[in-house]
Design a protein around this nucleic acid. Sequence first.
RNA 1: GGCCUCGUCGUCUAGUGGUCUAGGACAUUAGCUUCUCAGGCUAAGAACACGGGUUCGAAUCCCGUCGAGGUCACCA
Length: 469
Amino acid sequence: MIRTRIAPSPTGEDLHVGSIATALINYAWAKKHHGQFIVRIEDTDRKRLVKGAEERILKSLNRVGLIPDESPLVGGPYGPYRQSERLAIYQKYAQELVDKGHGYYCICTPERLFQMRKDQQAKKQIPKYDRLCLKNQEEVIKKIKKGEKYVIRLKVPDNQEIIVDDLIRGKVRFNTKDIDDQVLLKSDGFPTYHLGVVVDDHLMKITHVIRGEEWLPSTPKHILLYQAFGWELPFFAHISLLRNPDKSKLSKRKNPVWASYYLDKLGIFPEALINYLALMGWSHPEEKDVFSLEEYIRVFHIKDIQKTAPIFDPVKLEWLNGVYIRKTEDIKLKNKILEFYQKENIHLDPSLVEKTIPLIKERIKKLSDYWEYCQFFFEKPNTQELSFNKDNSYIKEIYQELEKIIDWKAGVIGERMIQLAKKIGVKNSDLFMMLRLAITGKKISPPLNESMEILGKEECLKRLKNYQK
RNA sequence: GGCCUCGUCGUCUAGUGGUCUAGGACAUUAGCUUCUCAGGCUAAGAACACGGGUUCGAAUCCCGUCGAGGUCACCA
């Protein structure tokens, strides 16, 4: 049975797109083998905890269709799935490590550690704990018994080769001489990531640890921990990090990174986001660009994941979303648009939105584009700002011609306008542009005749009159 | 700086020693379709980081150089 997991920490606004990419692979790998996909919240950093982040992360994950089999929300047989609720477990295992001689107590103050590292760096040495407390364990234990604060550190063996056998990168070799005596249990009784993941991944029977490449350098520590406990190693797979256009790791400082930005602010479809993210570091065997999550699960394989770190390109994401929009049924698209604007507390007339769908379906790339194209259906355009400096003396003729139309249909309107252009000797494009400006207030708009039909004769004539002033 | 990873068009990628005059997609440019913008169709330009090997033959294997990234916390 294959069991995968993602372990987000609720220290940001929402689910990070990089986390979605990781979640997607974990999800696909589990589902491909009819296994389970688990979400465990790693909320052990009490200082960086963001209120409401956990809820938003879980909600966003569900929105993009990566639904966990086990999580803090739905529970499961290996809970709790929130690390802050498992403190006793970590403490027990940390103690076990000390008892077995793989860990030790440390009462060094942050100030001392800071100074120590500073000195080491000044001497161009690698910053590493100097094991002061390991040398005086008895004394340290006495002080702890008197109530002194302490941490538990991993006792890293000397000069030993650790091989990480990675599903994506192959065998990666490290030497323990480069590895610091990692703090495992913090002085507030919370575990650090390193203790937390290993204990939980073991207890939760995770078979494949698929995570970002940023964790590769700390994997030997985790292996040391597995060995110290005498536990079987899971498979490791370190996937490349998504990058900013400047090639650094994708970060909120340089780019929008939250799921909610793409989903709610831009109006990208969850399926499109997933589809796009699937293309990061992987490609469909038939070189397809557009495919469903189900299809992805079917054809996906870990061995096909590429090692190079891709740049997250919003332009292609938008193109792909446009493809999804064009594939969406009109009624569904209408509802999505209605929903999208409702979130912003803008309530659009559903029947009017419905009429505009055929006009904009091929034009918008994301839901937030709708307003750009269709605002004029709902509000009178501000034509004051538009100084049309071309000859518009025939605006009156247009008005009169339109006024005569009984059967107010796009086809009829178009025909009459072309006839009129011929009659007064102006180019079709000029006449239509002037009309467009008067009706929509913009140089770019959905097809004019159809738009005018939707708007209605009365409203169109009103706008023309207004435009003449 | 130490350790680790990576290096094919601007971007995402195909490619696992000969089928590569390096394929596809996005983007760009041009043409057609047209009342604008889209969409659709057609076309064009655009890459194997560099230097050595190995081999009859290398984008593909080996070494080096360079470049990029990650990581070195009581953050994850």
